[in-house]
Design a binder for these strands. Sequence first.
DNA 1: TCTGGGGTCCTGAGCCGG
DNA 2: TCTGCCGGCTCAGGACCC
Length: 424
Amino acid sequence: MGRSANLPRGLRDRFLARDGSWPDDTGCPMLHVDMDAFYASVEIRERPELESVPVVVGGVGGRGVVCSANYLAREYGVRSAMPTAHARRLAPHAVYLPPQFPLYTEVSRAVMAIFRDVTPLVEPLSLDEAFLDVGGALRRLGLTSGGVGQLIRQRVFELQGVTCSVGVGPTKFLAKLASGMCKPDGMMVVPRDAVLDFLHPLPVSALWGVGAKTAERLAHAGLETVADVAATPLPRLRRMIGVALAEHLFSLAQGHDDRKVVPEHREKSIGAEETFEVDHYDRSLLRRELLRLAERSASSLRAKGLRGRTVSIKVRFSDFTTITRSRTLRVPTDVTQEVYRTAAELLDTQVPPGAVRLIGVRVEQLVGAEGSEQLLLDAPERGWREAEQAADQARSRFGSLAVRPASLLAAAPDRSGEFEPKPE
DNA sequence: TCTGGGGTCCTGAGCCGG
DNA sequence: TCTGCCGGCTCAGGACCC
């Protein structure tokens, strides 16, 4: 996964590791490890008979998209984030599999454990990639950064049966770019003294933070490559794309990036959303869906010992226009009923009627549950929290369907309008 | 082709209190 | 008491990333 931009071939060869040798990696403590076509590779590992066929993992419903495709499927033009229906037209003979996230999570944990054997400074970015700062581990291991990269690739393959690609560089950004350019199953090293040679020929879209919209704005101003951005006066760049983004991109384009590897991660929001198979107008059905999503969000909060003060809902209409509405509560909550009640009020009072294709609930402004306990002594949701904690325990013992709100029990699609959630 | 689901960060407007 | 300014907070939306 991850963005990749292509270097001119000669230049790519200059940085690629091959035959056990690689460019000078002195002063390059940052590694970015990216698993190759991760979900598809795990599926193939589980079912070796799929080894030589195109494999696509993704939503198999009418509105699903591709999560991961092996390299055989990519030969037909299949890419991640592409609608599955489109992928089926490009590669009708490929094997299409629904994602099994618990399995990928398990393999991911094992891979991250391999990284932590090498250095404690591991920053996972997602299930399939991580930054490692190996600067402090080199002497103990008796290796250079490139040697550590090769060691990791070898161990991941031997212990987990999947391949990964490793980028090595003086900064996180360069390591990440490099890993994207040596896929699959490769390693690339960007030497400290060759940073600008590596960076400047790349298109602006290689810069972190440049998506389709920003690339279009930059192109409009005649900026096509990273070198163009580096040569543009900062005040002009600020007027073009805003202060924060301009400063960020300008800095990256000079090869500067002083972000450290941060092993612990604090979540800022937790939420859940769902795209319907067909668009819905029915408010009672939308409210029932909100209850389900509120339950998913709140139980995730409780599992992580967090509470949030702001509840927001997201509604996407059939024409793809998307609105968000939010409300900040007096005290932080992790109670399903409180999240649901707030979300339903927002839906009822602030969302115009229309055909809805997606609805979502998110809880923001998170704090630790123990820190907010004091505020909650007289809060009305105390009884609900105790009941929901008991339900969480039952679910963890007997499965996720063991305890559910009554209004979700009889959710037969053809009777959808008959069951109104009754939280109070 | 027709666009998922989980997030993060930034910007700008409006409101409020000092 | 009124006004203007400023900072902080809330809210909405957009862009981006994996």
